[in-house]
């Protein structure tokens, strides 16, 4: 059972939407007949402070309620966290870990910084995409689009449907359209080593 489970750890700074992304992804995989569990690591809630979020996805109901110790996928929403030992972006990772980093740098440059032998590193300029499409530097939704380029847990189209359902009640059509475009662009613009 544990073998079929995808475990994702999100690294971000408060205000970048990692909590929303971690929980939203867990909710949206339900449409695929999968089970999801999403939660943030709560602490002092300050805009700009390093924070982590977690998402588990499985074919079976998820029973464990502990932190993710050895993430299969690490998503970094803020590249400045790569230089922060306190953020611990490489804690518990190994040669099978997949990194997806929001940055304008190349995967090779990020690989060098991460220094995790064997780990796959992908990059995407999610902040740039968010500014272009949504008009605000909120990289969370584009990062989910990028994630779907490395894991086929759901299609971009199904994600967009879930997004409309999630954002529909709260946001204007302009914001929703921006997010839909952001997801699609990030999915296409992911750069792999």
């Amino acid at each position: 059972m544990a073998g079929q489970m995808v475990e994702i750890r999100w690294h971000a700074r408060g205000g970048q939407g990692a909590k929303t992304a971690a929980m939203f992804l867990a909710e949206s995989v339900l449409t695929q007949g999968k089970y999801g569990q999403g939660f943030p690591e709560y602490g002092p809630e300050r805009r700009g402070a390093p924070m982590r979020g977690y998402t588990r996805i499985s074919e079976n109901p998820i029973r464990r309620h502990c932190m993710i110790e050895n993430p299969g996928i690490v998503i970094i929403l803020d590249p400045s966290l790569l230089d922060s030992p306190a953020a611990g972006v490489t804690a518990g990772v190994g040669e099978n870990t997949v990194f997806i980093v929001n940055t304008t740098e190349t995967p090779a440059a990020i690989s060098k910084k991460l220094n995790v032998p064997g780990a796959a590193v992908h990059t995407v300029d999610a902040t740039g995409i968010a500014l272009d499409t949504i008009g605000r530097p909120i990289p969370n939704m584009p990062m989910i689009g990028a994630l779907l380029a490395v894991d086929d847990m759901m299609s971009v189209k199904d994600l967009q449907t879930a997004l409309v359902e999630q954002l529909g009640a709260k946001f204007s059509q302009k914001v929703i359209d921006g997010n839909l475009a952001a997801v699609e662009r990030a999915n296409k613009e992911l750069v792999s080593a």
């Binding site: 971690a22 929980m23 939203f24 867990a26 909710e27 339900l30 089970y35 999801g36 569990q37 999403g38 939660f39 943030p40 709560y42 109901p61 998820i62 309620h65």
Partner: peptide, 12 residues
Amino acid sequence: YDGFIISHTADA
């Protein structure tokens, strides 16, 4: 129900 572990976790 457990604070954060259940209360703030998205679950099916």
